[in-house]
Design a protein around this nucleic acid. Sequence first.
DNA 1: ATGAAAGCGCTAACAT
DNA 2: ATGTTAGCGCTTTCAT
Lengths: 353, 353
Amino acid sequence: MIEKDNRGASGEDGQEDPVHVRTLADLARLAGVSAGTVSRALAGKELVNTETRERIQAMAREHGFRPNQMASKLRTRRTGVIGVVIPLGHEKRQQISDPFFLTLLGHLADAMTESGYDLMLSRTIPDGTSDWLERITGSGMVDGVLVIGQSDQWEVIEQVSRSYRPMVVWGHHRAGQHHVTVGTDNELGGRLAAERLIASGAKKLAFMGVTQGIEIEMRHRGARAAAEAAGVPLVHIPARLAGEEMDPLIQAALSEPLYEIDGIVAASDLIAMSALRCLHGLNRAVPREIQIVGFDDLPLAAHTSPPLSTIRQEIALGAKLMVDKLTALIGGGSAQSEITTPVLIERATTRTL
Amino acid sequence: MIEKDNRGASGEDGQEDPVHVRTLADLARLAGVSAGTVSRALAGKELVNTETRERIQAMAREHGFRPNQMASKLRTRRTGVIGVVIPLGHEKRQQISDPFFLTLLGHLADAMTESGYDLMLSRTIPDGTSDWLERITGSGMVDGVLVIGQSDQWEVIEQVSRSYRPMVVWGHHRAGQHHVTVGTDNELGGRLAAERLIASGAKKLAFMGVTQGIEIEMRHRGARAAAEAAGVPLVHIPARLAGEEMDPLIQAALSEPLYEIDGIVAASDLIAMSALRCLHGLNRAVPREIQIVGFDDLPLAAHTSPPLSTIRQEIALGAKLMVDKLTALIGGGSAQSEITTPVLIERATTRTL
DNA sequence: ATGAAAGCGCTAACAT
DNA sequence: ATGTTAGCGCTTTCAT
């Protein structure tokens, strides 16, 4: 029942080549030259006669032939592929769902295409060893590795980086660390958010988000520092990053009159969005009664009701930096960690100053 | 100058192997056996003495050795990699930004990990030829290809599919087509949305979204059919998929009293979200004055204010179907196109029935 | 149970 | 400008 589909063009195989050209040697034979020449011709090398080169290229096109990449990569010891790893460390669900990571991934794909690299994606679940990372670095399948988020694997990454150079990580930079990171100054971001809220009159703040990952922890720290400096109380509401189940917590916190919260620093835009919706349900006016600042500035932040004031992480820039640093490393050069500066985007969930 | 590689990284940190094991042969020499035996041992083959096998595996672990995948794949003619292509045909911006595609990509990564395949991502900009696709299919780098979205490349995909079997496409299915697709019944989805709006009293509908891609076109068609059947007028507002610039259009349409729109079928959740925000700004009550139904049921749909009623596409299921069909094709089997049934998710942007 | 040997399909150094 | 040759590092008969 498999080869039943003999409709359409001629015979049962359509208009295929009578001689199927599958290798350089095949094409070489057909063109009456050697495999070496074909290789050079297809690579567009100058040292081959212009006429033969064009003839060979034409033949290749005609037969739909492309050199086998596996062989080529084996021979040249260069794969043209960058591995992108997303460690799903402290995630319950084994799924790539974080919209920030997904957005970063999209931008990485763009940056790599521009640099002529292909992207090999690995979603991995760390297992207590460094195997999840070394499976990629040691496979000979990639020229370098990008890690999206340290999860709870800082030690592993640090250790692997000592023997595997071409690696760049999105995440938090600890003083003196060996591996190269690109990331936002999360503490500053948290501070900017809290300061903005206070500047426009907030008297009691809440920080929403679980401080499990180091990044959120830093955002919390920054917000706390700003609150303390201004003598404004700040409570911590460990709302989960995304997921439908976070609402009850937020709801409880916001509807508790005792709390009297009038300013929210959300650990992410998604959490902010969720808060927005609870507030909407509770009939609390934003920003008149409660102000909110999100974090990330994902595309959706501009489209909430009302549009979300947020701390912008320069995702596209971050992606470009990661790729640039990695290509430098791949080329044998060196690279430094880089911390980008977050900026406050004022939309409509904060009162005007 | 080529053999400059005197043990690469180890200059600054001392705890590396004194003898770097880089190939099977290296390890074989060290273990006093032949390369063939090492290969068999590491592959966990039964025909090698249990004791030697374990000894060799231990040595490999100790030296952090892994067989070069390029060589292995070349030899076995099987890559273990699936290519995922996102054609950016009618997108202005050269960027993977569509949150639906990104979400689908995440689920594909999950499904592939389960099936033991790696994922190679290519973002491509179609150029008028079929090159963007054949570059992947003909590269010898992947065992099969998944295409996320047909964009405006239906013809190209159809044509390539005639000579390249292991390919599955997310998108619209035309009767009699050759290539295998998995997709939602968009027309039904559009109809469900419009019918639901009408059932709860809508008297004048708007369909929001550019009908450039075939999928949106079908959603529009479904909505129109339902509207006509009920004798309810429906206007088309060509709001762009995502992007900040769509608001003015929506705003204009909604604030024009002449239109008297009281029901919106949005072509995507993002468009719905944008409409929601305009309405919020115009002080129009949702769902009391105007009802909205989105499309996709992305995670964020549950978190808008008020939570969005929407047409759910089973993204995780779709991803699983695509991967299953592709692996069947790769294994030499056959596969059929499949159209999944969208379902209406009732949240709070539609009035109760 | 293990070794020897023959490639997988390509590239590049070395001839000519 | 082109052909010849020697591998890249692995897997897998075929022998033993």
